[in-house]
Amino acid sequence: MSDLLDNKEEAEKAIMAWLEKKTKSKSKFYLKDFYSIFPDDKPRMIKKVVNNMVTEGVLEYWSSGSTTMYGIKGAGKQSHSEGED
């Protein structure tokens, strides 16, 4: 994949397949973790695809205040405790 934005749907499928395989061991990932899926593409293009998936509601951000991670929306321990008072 030389240009992720031209083939956005395939890029999103590849990201979801990678995440579904990896979420057995952990649920949140750094942006740089996604770089291994597309070694020939620039980090900026990968970030655009991942951020677009967040906008579409497929993925979600998680932030500790000093770092931002990404995961499948609704997956992981953190998502179960958010929103509870």
Rank of each mutant, 00 (worst) to 15 (best):
Q78I: 15
M69H: 00
P43F: 02
E10C: 11
F29A: 05
E60R: 13
S66T: 14
S64M: 10
H80G: 03
K22C: 02
M16W: 01
D6Q: 09
A75M: 15
D6F: 05
S63L: 00
Y35V: 01
T67K: 14
L31C: 06
M1T: 05
Y35L: 00
D41I: 00
M53R: 01
T23E: 15
R44G: 13
G71K: 00
M45F: 12
A11Q: 04
R44F: 15
L19T: 00
Y35F: 10
M1I: 02
K8W: 05
S63G: 08
T68G: 08
A14W: 01
I46G: 02
S79Y: 04
E82R: 11
A17I: 12
D33I: 03
V50L: 08
M53H: 11
T55I: 09
K77E: 15
G57V: 02
A17C: 06
M53E: 02
V58H: 07
M1V: 10
M16S: 03
I46M: 07
T55F: 11
E10Q: 13
L19V: 04
P39R: 06
E56H: 09
S64N: 13
Y30N: 11
E10V: 13
K21Y: 08
V49T: 05
S36T: 11
L19A: 08
D85P: 15
K26D: 03
T55D: 13
F29S: 03
K21A: 12
M16F: 07
S64W: 07
P43H: 06
I72M: 07
F29T: 06
D40Q: 12
S25D: 15
Y70A: 10
W18H: 05
W18M: 02
E56C: 09
H80Y: 09
E56D: 14
K48C: 09
K13C: 07
I46W: 06
K13I: 06
G74Q: 10
L59N: 09
G74K: 11
A14S: 10
Y30W: 11
I15N: 01
F29M: 02
K73V: 06
E60L: 02
W18Y: 08
K48R: 12
I72Y: 03
P43V: 01
D85V: 10
S2V: 12
E84L: 15
G71L: 00
K22P: 09
Y30L: 12
Y70T: 04
H80D: 07
H80Q: 14
F34I: 01
D6P: 01
D85K: 12
N52A: 07
G76F: 01
E56A: 13
Y61N: 02
V49D: 08
K47D: 13
E82T: 09
M16E: 06
E9K: 13
S25N: 14
D40P: 03
P43W: 04
K28E: 09
K32G: 05
I46K: 06
S63Q: 01
W62K: 04
W18F: 12
H80R: 09
E9N: 11
K42W: 03
